[in-house]
Design a protein around this nucleic acid. Structure first.
Length: 691
DNA sequence: GCAAGGTC
């Protein structure tokens, strides 16, 4: 008797890989009828019987959670109701017809084997697949069909791992799946209730908020909060003066001069600094009392994963995380690079490093480096972490005719790959220590001995510009050329760069490699932040007011730890140590109370909003209203003053002369003449003029 | 129209 086995992976690409491995290359692939998935078929053995295998896949989640349609009418549903409203699962992407597709493939099968990714989400998708197949499974296997449902546990898509998983099939884990169900429901109820409430509340009150939707979410809000926190550090920064002694000495053999680094660094008391400066001047010379040389090395990078690609693309290529992912996906589907969503930073043991590198030997830019690495022998890659998802991101074929952003990402992926097969950058560090009137100075020289991997990643090459004091010897005496006291000021940190934000999100567990770009994109499109030069994220008055407001009402609403407690409880569900309903209901009740408290205290945010967009307003009388509709307007530019009414879509110009006087512009009638204007200039000076 | 998580 021949049995029929259906196996389901999480994405089409994996279904084929798994079939190829398990069939030793004999599987035959055809397109699934939904035109999204493929089916690979082969003949083999299953539980001691001859078996016909079909391997297919879903495309991520089959279902997605939502409220029933009548609760999705924003006017007829009180957002508070969303804590008790029913929820339902809809097909995640109706175009794919995934439920029908899976059901049809499950017709007349004897066994179902689930090959979804081995994480909580994957466990949850297992049950979505089971639900889709259930009716047909019951028909072919009877009411105890779950006995014929298995789960494969694999930690890498390698021959060894996949075959081992097939030989030790387990069962899907309902508890892990339930923890995801709880998370989905919490995110839905909390996110939608806050978003709907504050969108309706603020839009009913103000004409323009820069965003038609004032969203809130357990990931996007803490993400925004990181940007606002840096903004607060900058605005609250108090610069402090300090002094440094700058002493310039002539080298013993004449000619060149050096300015060694003073060991005391900076002094915050001018008189003390002057005292040291005088002493050094009086000594008039400095003696070299120690010269030491040691070897230092800069280690090569680990194999490339998604988050690192996103960071580099943002900081070095100026590409947003979401466009980086979109470009990387194109490169992947066209066969230029491997699968771009991975957390893994170590190459699988059977990875063909040699062959992958050999494909690059003809490249005009790094072909010679690739040839040299092949000739000298590949250096063992730095150890990384295998997260069991996909191999690191690597080139798969030569660059061909790529151009634009696709070429730039491809170039980076390839240079990074080559670098991981090279040696460390080795350089010599020579530290010469000088003494003058008991004060210590030092000069540090670096000399690259072997550029190692930096030959492939030239932008990381060790800095040789520090070469300032060649051949100083112990006992040398240097004559002082000049010394002076320089005054400096401490400066605030810069605004958060996108790549720093990615690091913070990763560190605090906000989002995943796939969703980090989405959250960053969300806070941009909602106009909570703007991306300025160097891809620094500057929060807008809207973003700042929201975060400050949440912070004053309930700090937990913005903290990256907002869900730390909830996550802990969800993990208990996953481990089977806590009851799904108990945990879910407890968390829901907690957030319902937070929501009610938020609604009661939302005027706190009103005052912050009003303060932020009345930069030009009289303290008592808000002038910045549109002459037509009398709604608040947005300040577009403060000098000359330009105001914009989003409702009437009109811009009003109110230029001011250099003396700070505000005058009407030509014969255009000022619609604001009944109000006072306050014009902010420079650091908080204001000029009030009456129209 | 809203969240966050998969994936395309």
């Amino acid at each position: 008797m021949t049995v029929s086995v259906l196996m389901v992976a999480e994405k089409p690409m994996l279904a084929d890989s798994i079939a190829q491995i398990l069939s030793n290359g004999s599987a035959h692939k055809r397109k699934g009828w939904n035109n999204v998935c493929s089916v690979s078929e082969y003949i083999g053995r299953f539980q001691g019987k001859d078996a016909r295998f079909k391997v297919t896949s879903t495309c991520g989640h089959v279902m997605s959670l939502d409220f029933p349609p009548k609760f999705n009418n924003w006017d007829r549903t009180d957002p508070a109701e969303l804590y008790s409203a029913p929820v339902q699962k809809n097909e995640a992407n109706p175009n794919m017809k995934m439920c029908n597709y899976l059901a049809s493939e499950a017709k007349n099968i004897d066994y179902l084997v689930l090959w979804l990714d081995c994480d909580k989400e994957g466990e949850n998708i297992c049950f979505e697949v089971i639900d889709a197949c259930e009716a047909n499974l019951k028909q072919s296997c009877g009411p105890k069909f779950m006995d014929n449902v298995y789960r494969a546990h694999f930690s890498a898509i390698t021959d060894k791992d996949i075959k081992a998983a097939m030989n030790s099939l387990g069962r899907p884990d309902l508890n892990q799946s339930l923890s995801v169900d709880a998370r989905q429901e919490l995110d839905l109820r909390i996110g939608c209730s806050f978003t709907r409430f504050q969108t309706k509340y603020f839009h009913g009150k103000y004409g323009n908020l820069d965003s038609s939707c004032i969203s809130f979410g357990p990931c996007q809000t803490p993400t925004l909060a990181f940007c606002v926190k840096r903004h607060d550090q900058i605005t609250q920064f108090k610069p402090e003066q300090y002094w440094v002694v700058q002493a310039t000495y002539n080298l013993p053999n004449g000619g060149a001069e050096i300015r060694p680094e003073w060991s005391r660094g900076r002094i915050f008391d001018r008189e003390v600094a002057q005292l040291f400066c005088d002493r050094i001047k009086k000594a008039g010379k400095a003696e070299v009392y120690d010269v030491s040389t040691k070897e230092a090395r800069k280690e090569k990078p680990q194999a490339l994963n998604t988050v690192e690609l996103l960071r580099v693309a943002s900081s070095s290529l100026g590409l947003s995380p979401s466009s980086t992912m979109s470009v990387a996906e194109h490169l992947y589907t066209q066969g230029y690079i491997s699968y771009p969503r991975t957390e893994t930073t170590s190459y699988p043991s059977n990875f063909d490093l040699q062959g992958t590198l050999a494909q690059q030997t003809g490249d005009p830019r790094w072909g010679s480096i690739a040839r040299k690495v092949l000739a000298d022998g590949i250096k063992r890659p730095k150890s990384g972490e295998d997260k069991g998802d996909h191999p690191p991101i690597t080139p798969m074929k030569p660059r061909g005719g790529l151009s634009g952003d696709m070429l730039r990402i491809y170039e980076y992926v390839t240079q990074h790959f080559i670098a991981t097969l090279m040696g460390p950058c080795i350089y010599k560090v020579t530290t010469s220590k000088l003494s003058a009137a008991g004060e210590e100075f030092q000069v540090v020289d670096r000399l690259v001995v072997d550029p190692g991997f930096t030959a492939a990643m030239s932008w990381l090459s060790a800095d040789e510009e520090n070469l300032r004091a060649p051949n100083l010897r112990k006992g040398d005496v240097l004559m002082l050329k000049e010394s002076q006291l320089a005054v400096r000021e401490t400066s605030p940190p810069g605004y958060l760069t996108e790549s720093e934000l990615i690091t913070l999100m990763e560190k605090h567990g906000i989002g995943t490699d796939a969703s980090i770009p989405v959250h960053i994109n969300t806070i941009c499109v909602r106009n909570y932040v703007t991306v300025e030069s160097g891809r620094r994220l500057i929060p807008t008055p809207l973003g700042i007011s929201l975060i400050h407001g949440y912070w004053r009402i309930d700090g937990e609403l913005v903290l990256p730890t907002m869900r730390a407690e909830v996550e802990k409880q969800l993990t208990l569900i996953a481990k089977g140590e806590a009851d799904y309903f108990a945990v879910k209901n407890h968390a829901l009740e907690m957030f319902r109370q937070k929501f009610v408290y938020f609604v009661q205290n939302v005027p706190v945010i009103d005052s912050l909003f009003e303060a932020s967009f009345t930069t030009l307003a009289d303290a008592g009388k808000p002038f910045s209203k549109c002459g037509k509709c009398h709604r608040f307007m947005k300040l577009v530019e403060s000098r000359p003053i330009r105001l914009y009414c989003p409702t009437c879509r009109e811009t009003y110009n109110l230029p001011s002369s250099k003396d700070g006087q505000i005058r009407l512009h030509g014969d255009k009638k000022c619609p604001l003449d009944e109000f006072d204007l306050v014009y902010w200039q420079g650091k908080g000076q204001k000029f009030i003029r009456n129209f």
